[in-house]
C-alpha cells in the first residue's frame, strides 16, 4: 500500500504542487496527468525515493520511507524518462542486465520469448544504438512483463509507442493490477485500462 500525505514540491522559489495526497491499495492504479511543467516527473521521482519531498511524506506499507529506503527499493520497478539502455549492448543483454540487477534469475529462452512477445524477435541481438525510440520503449515493456515487483512507477510509458504498443502496455498494467500489484503512471496520452480501480490525479500548472 502506497500513500502520499500532503506532498509538496518546490523548484527554486516556485511551488510546483502542494497538498498532493492519495492512498493506493494493492490492485489499484494512479494515473497522473497535467500540463508540461506541472510536476508530474517530480512527483513520480518523489514516490520512487529519488527526491526528498519539500513537505509531507511517502508511506509504503504503512511505514514512512526516506529517499533510497531499502524497503521501497526491494518492491519498486521505476521506469524513468530516459531509457537506461546501453547503446553498446544488444536488446537481449540490456534486458538481462536489468533483471539481474533486480535480483531475478531468468533463463535466456524466457528473455528471448519476452522480447518476441513485444515484437522484437528479430531485433533482439541488435545493439540498442540502432533501435528506434518506440523499439527501445518496447524493451522496457518486456521488462515489465518479466519483473515480479509489486510497485510500478512509470514516467510517460506511452511515449513513442504505436497503437499496438499502447494496447500492450495497457494489457500489462491490467494484468499487474489483477495480480495485486500497484501502479503509478504519469502520462499525456490516455492510457485505456480495463481495470476500474484506476484513480486519477490532475496536477495543475504551477502556482506562485
Amino acid at each position: 500500500m502506497l500513500e502520499a500525505q500532503s506532498l509538496a514540491a518546490r523548484r527554486g522559489y516556485a511551488t510546483l504542487f502542494r497538498d498532493v495526497r492519495f492512498s493506493l491499495r494493492p490492485g489499484e492504479a494512479l494515473v497522473v496527468t497535467g500540463p508540461n511543467g506541472s510536476g508530474k516527473t517530480t512527483l513520480l521521482r518523489m514516490l520512487a525515493g529519488l527526491t526528498a519531498p519539500f513537505e509531507g511524506e511517502v508511506r509504503w506499507r504503512g511505514e514512512p520511507v526516506a529517499p533510497f529506503a531499502q524497503a521501497l527499493r526491494d518492491a519498486l520497478l521505476f521506469n524513468g524518462h530516459s531509457s537506461a539502455l546501453k547503446d553498446e549492448l544488444s536488446a537481449e543483454e540490456n534486458l538481462d542486465a536489468w533483471l539481474r540487477l533486480d535480483g531475478e534469475r531468468v533463463a535466456s529462452e524466457v528473455i528471448a520469448q519476452a522480447l518476441a512477445d513485444v515484437g522484437l524477435a528479430r531485433q533482439r541481438r541488435l545493439p540498442a544504438r540502432v533501435l528506434s525510440q518506440g523499439q527501445r520503449r518496447r524493451i522496457a515493456l518486456a521488462r515489465l512483463r518479466l519483473a515480479s515487483r509489486p510497485l510500478w512507477i512509470l514516467d510517460e510509458p506511452a511515449t513513442a509507442l504505436d497503437t499496438d504498443g499502447l494496447a500492450m502496455l495497457a494489457a500489462l498494467v491490467d494484468a499487474h493490477l489483477d495480480g495485486g500489484g500497484l501502479c503509478v503512471a504519469a502520462t499525456h496520452q490516455a492510457l485505456v485500462l480495463q481495470s476500474t480501480r484506476a484513480q486519477s490525479l490532475v496536477l495543475h500548472a504551477a502556482v506562485a
Binding site: 520512487a48 525515493g49 529519488l50 533510497f68 531499502q70 527499493r73 526491494d74 519498486l76 521505476f78 524513468g80 524518462h81 530516459s82 531509457s83 537506461a84 539502455l85 546501453k86 547503446d87 536489468w98 540487477l101 533486480d102 535480483g103
Partner: peptide, 16 residues
C-alpha cells in the same frame, strides 16, 4: 547519468 542507468542502479535493491 545521461541515459538513466544511474537512476536504475541507485533504485535497485542491490547495495549501491
Amino acid at each position: 547519468f545521461r541515459d538513466g542507468t544511474l537512476e536504475q542502479i541507485a533504485l535497485s535493491p542491490a547495495p549501491l
